[in-house]
Design a protein around this nucleic acid. Structure first.
Lengths: 168, 168
DNA sequence: GTTATTGCAAATGATTTGCACAAGG
DNA sequence: CCTTGTGCAAATCATTTGCAATAAC
């Protein structure tokens, strides 16, 4: 699954940074390292928690600023999962055109790629007089747990309880 | 385009209200009247402005509470257009399964329905082991203005400038 | 050195909520 | 009446920002 290494990402970011006249910092390196060491989606807050568990430091401000930088450099995408916090997806470097299926009950997210839906997307877009650009399709559905047990609140609970409670 | 009248919506809401042991109020009537008198998408703030231009009154608090009520009664849908403010779509009573195409430059939104994409959506969902539920597909693209003039900032500007500026 | 970056604390802004008063049924 | 709804102002909470100190290059 991991075709692009962290070193590749760092290279790309450094290129971007140089082109823009910006600077490489230990905070940015640490954040990139952390984000791209897994393929998990995350919120700013979840990432902040993860950083605090390492021996690197970065303030929330720096974290938010770095997230914006990575999105601008097209290394990270903001995806709309609904909810109050923005969610970030680090997998677009590996899989430039994937989409998301979301359980409307528990919030579980599955990534998928499908040629047919891309073609159809393209057709619909042109038919409406638009020019196809960024592919971004979100399907809402019910996951297995919901199907078999009638309900699956585990994940939604954990997502709700992840609200920030004065964690400095 | 308008197959469902405001009276129908009022009836549905009143049924919902009775079933829940809630109460019909002039504020709720006025808000419903206003929302369903057009097929425009809107934000809470835009709706508040519209209300102030009528001779009915409703506070922001009541407005937010009524929006939640309407969403719960399935007469109104929250749609994700990105951006800080939630957007509401009053057209799901008329067209229960439509989707949205959005210009990534100016934010212009077009509704569409397509049987093929619904079927495909269904297939993908089942293939991933989910049960199809709410159809909600958002396609991002570039609109005509962008195509012909290279850029179309009109709407995005107006959307940005619609940020609330101490309008009591 | 010069300019970008950081961390802090304060600001922002949409939405929510507590509470006292008003008003449906 | 009794309970729900309303309006106000205050609270929330994710995110952004001003600013002085710090660190790339």
């Amino acid at each position: 699954m991991e075709n692009v290494s962290i070193a590749d990402i760092q290279d790309k970011l450094n290129g971007f940074i140089k082109r823009k006249g910006l600077r490489r910092t230990p905070q940015r390196d640490a954040i990139v390292e952390l984000i791209f060491s897994t393929d998990e989606h995350f919120t700013a807050d979840e990432l902040y928690d993860r950083i605090r568990r390492t021996n690197s430091t970065a303030s929330r401000a720096t974290l938010y600023r770095t997230l914006s930088l990575l999105v601008e450099a097209d290394l990270l995408h903001e995806i709309d999962l609904g909810g109050d916090q923005k969610t970030y997806d680090p997998n677009f470097v590996d899989s430039p055109s994937h989409n998301h299926l979301i359980c409307i009950d528990c919030g579980k997210v599955v990534e998928f790629a499908d040629d047919n839906i891309e073609i159809l997307n393209d057709c619909i877009t042109r038919r409406l007089g638009f020019r196809p650009a960024k592919q971004s399709i979100r399907i809402e559905a019910c996951c297995e747990t919901l199907r078999s047990k009638g309900i699956c609140q585990d994940l939604i609970k954990s997502r709700l309880s992840s609200k920030r409670i004065n964690k400095k």
